[in-house]
């Protein structure tokens, strides 16, 4: 995940490595301003979302009020306080994608997954989000599934695009 890579962690790191890394980062950055967001990113990488207990720990360790940490988590759409599916689908609703049918793609995606934006399928396979421009406007409309960019998406082809991400029966 690109967010985690900024913190210097390989996406192949094990949970244990991440926990060790988190503790080390907390120790190093306790007094430094600006430590909060990288720590939240790391934590989200660990759990797939930000559990309240983890937010409390970070708030205490960094001596930043819990209400402030929660406010920051709520402000950035990349942070989630509910568990995510194994695959995160983000449908771009930026201007270029929107005018080229991004909204129809989103509707089709909702129908296909039978969930709304911000929700996760019962089998925890997929979460659905909207994006606000991935910087690939020339390929509009665009959908990102995990780190893959799917270009020039047609509503009718969505089921097929998702197939490769489903667990093999």
């Amino acid at each position: 995940m690109e967010t985690a890579n900024k913190t210097g962690i390989q996406s192949s790191a094990t949970d244990e490595e991440i926990i060790q890394h988190l503790d080390r980062v907390i120790q190093e950055s306790r007094e430094k301003p600006g430590a909060l967001i990288p720590l939240l990113q790391l934590t989200q990488k660990m759990y797939g979302y930000l559990p309240e207990a983890a937010i409390k720990k970070i708030s205490r360790e960094l001596k930043i009020p819990f209400s402030e940490v929660a406010g920051i988590v709520g402000f950035y759409s990349f942070f989630s306080t509910v568990p995510k599916g194994r695959n995160v689908v983000r449908v771009c609703q930026g201007t270029a994608c929107y005018v080229r049918g991004g909204n129809e793609v989103l509707s089709a995606m909702k129908n296909e997954l039978k969930i709304g934006v911000g929700e996760t399928t019962k089998d925890r396979e997929f979460s659905l989000e909207v994006g606000r421009c991935f910087g690939a406007c020339g390929l509009a409309p665009v959908v990102m599934i995990n780190n893959d960019v799917i270009q020039r998406v047609k509503p009718s082809k969505i089921a097929e695009s998702l197939k490769v991400y489903r667990v093999k029966p």
Partner: peptide, 10 residues
Amino acid sequence: SVGSLYPQGR
């Protein structure tokens, strides 16, 4: 320095 209130959401 109580820290109970903060903007939540966006």
